[in-house]
Design a protein around this nucleic acid. Structure first.
Lengths: 170, 170
DNA sequence: AAAATATGTCAATAATGCTGACATATTTTG
DNA sequence: CAAAATATGTCAGCATTATTGACATATTTT
């Protein structure tokens, strides 16, 4: 009886692999890729006294100018209280401004300032460069596959969040 | 003069888009995909009183049985003190065991127990299912593109960490 | 007028990370 | 063999990002 109550549990010496019917290869690659994907902006952010949370807010305010606090909470999947401090700091430092909603004056529409736009671009640049480098040898069709894959990884009921920004809104 | 000292900074009402020479589409998709990719195991982990940090340790101990503490720190890119608490909890709950290194007795080789292996599979299952569903319509060649892309997103000098586990170690 | 909604704020707490310092056991070096 | 280097463990303090619960204010809807 080698159950949990044994003083010493038996070590398993074989590695799990894709054989177990589980795609460990892609699971692990996704972890490594995202770890390094976020590392570039993380370094820049420390110079500004900001963290990854500030980056996320700044990104979406630049991506969807005029979105409300509620919409931002829904996209980030965090609570109002978690957002509060981060948003306040971005407002206090002049990266983001709030405007009263034109139709519903309870709402606060969030917009980037020129300063906030500039920082968003600075943060996105190394990420875009990394993506561009990773796609170097990929064809246009392969890029489409990757885009479709990433989109399909998102919960179906939340995929609408992605489509808010048209492919080339410019 | 609309600089930062102005009482009210001017809001920018246009959205950033890929036009700015930055691949915001993939940047954002990567964020959404990873957010939902980690949400499944996160929910399961709360039932065990564990967090995402425990999951990462458990994953790599199952993936590379016998890896040392130093190797684990290198893979996770965290400090020894950060790992300590999480690792201790996994050991105390019988998910992971430490064996003295056979050659260098200072080292502690980390192995999963049957309990730890089982939990790793439970956590990986929904992630694998999500990947599988996302690849549903993709051809084998497209899967390769995605794998190559994710691998290319990892810092070149750290890509060796990925290759430690052979494609089909089974 | 009452209820619902959007936002803001306060207080307390948890998870995960950090730095710095130091102890122990073991291996390597001179 | 003694000294230095290495691998690990641990303590104390702290920062960031998240959580829940409670409550206040302004505004809109019923």
């Amino acid at each position: 009886m080698s159950d949990q109550t044994d003083a010493v549990a038996t070590p398993i010496r074989t590695a799990v692999a894709d054989d177990d019917g589980i795609d460990f290869t892609l699971i692990e690659l996704f972890f490594f890729a995202y770890r390094d994907f976020t590392s570039d902006p993380d370094e820049i952010l420390t110079d500004y006294g900001f963290g990854r949370a500030h980056h996320r807010v700044l990104h979406f305010v630049n991506r969807r100018p005029g979105l409300t606090v509620a919409e931002l909470l829904d996209v980030l999947k965090i609570t109002k209280q978690s957002l509060a401090r981060v948003l306040k700091e971005l407002i206090d430092t002049g990266h983001v401004v709030q405007l009263q909603g034109p139709k519903d004056r309870r709402q606060r529409e969030l917009y980037p300032t020129a300063k906030g736009r500039a920082l968003a671009l600075v943060l996105a640049k190394p990420q875009s460069r990394r993506i561009h480098a990773a796609l170097k040898e990929a064809s246009a069709g392969q890029r489409d596959s990757i885009e479709r894959f990433l989109k399909a990884m998102v919960n179906p009921e939340l995929r609408a969040q992605i489509d808010i920004v048209p492919k080339n809104a410019g």
